[in-house]
Nucleic acid binder design. Sequence first.
DNA 1: CCTTGCCAACCATTTAGTAGGTAGATTTTT
DNA 2: AAAAATCTACCTACTAAATGGTTGGCAAGG
Lengths: 193, 193
Amino acid sequence: MRDTRAELLIQAETLVRASGYAGFSYADLAAAVGIRKASIHHHFPTKSDLALALVAAYGERYDAALAEIVAGSERAPERIAAYGQLYLGGVEQGLGCLCAVLAIEGEALPETVRAAVARFFEAHIAWLAAVLEEGQAAGTVRADRDPAVLARLVVATLEGALLLERLLGGPEAFSGTLRALVAGLEAAAPDRA
Amino acid sequence: MRDTRAELLIQAETLVRASGYAGFSYADLAAAVGIRKASIHHHFPTKSDLALALVAAYGERYDAALAEIVAGSERAPERIAAYGQLYLGGVEQGLGCLCAVLAIEGEALPETVRAAVARFFEAHIAWLAAVLEEGQAAGTVRADRDPAVLARLVVATLEGALLLERLLGGPEAFSGTLRALVAGLEAAAPDRA
DNA sequence: CCTTGCCAACCATTTAGTAGGTAGATTTTT
DNA sequence: AAAAATCTACCTACTAAATGGTTGGCAAGG
């Protein structure tokens, strides 16, 4: 029933993550899905409707992944590492983070979309801050920094690493950055080479 | 003499950094500079010519800034902090890094532009790796990590923080991330709250 | 029978880019 | 030094293609 709509979301997400919001057109999307341009408007009247639905779906997928991480690991550093792994797929497929792509288009974006993107990042920061705070209490995360600051550092590093290594170094370089990031967060990091 | 051309570069850079490469048009640029659309083609025949010139000018400005940092500070952590400060202007003005904006548009970009952007990042990574290696030798930077990996971590974190805090937390949040980043690079970080 | 999903055909606007020309400076030739 | 040729920077006016979006209709299915 919702088959076409779902397919539209999938293909549109790929297009946006590959070329940006302004960089893809309804014509491109129609071609990708094998449907006529006018039919897209039936499902998503305007382009910002589509963008909004895209961010919502993306956010939900991440929410599910975060819940799985909490269920699947105990120690905070492990959880952060698992969180970082979520970005890896993008590097492998040569696709940016949907919300990073949208965020960077800033000015040109409908206000509602910008707000949704902001909420996406805020949710991640809040989740990470909670994980890190727990880790500090358990003694697995260095306790000399505000967990909220560390949470922002984590999101920034991973978003930046995706941006960078998608273009430059590929999955291996990304994984190297992720390892260094997690190592820097752990309590009592070894100091000798 | 080169006044118009320079003005075109300035305004075009602002437009791209605010809205992306696909997100601005020659019409926008013409309006910003106060010239007719056709006259832009006189200076930059195609849009990718313009993009290429943009990246070149941006890269040169950064090169100059990097040289100044080397001249103006001795210790590696200070140099990294000064490097991070270069990104701050973008957060304050609500503009992304030119090369991050271009990098994210990936697929949709002319190949020549993509290559120039890649070179931009590679140059920064190389510069940072050299600074960090020197710092390790001098004992100011933690020596348990490959300087090349740390260099990538630095660029990723700063690009990501610019992306994020331009949208979310503003200059203060960016500075917080920068402080945490530099602190994590320093040798013998204090472990107690 | 009327909603859902899709379509062809259309629309106004915008896109990057072109054609051709003009006014003023600079250079080259006489 | 005067005249001729060339160059620079800009213009108006245009084009073909693409943009997001609309209209009205048609077929299938509850």
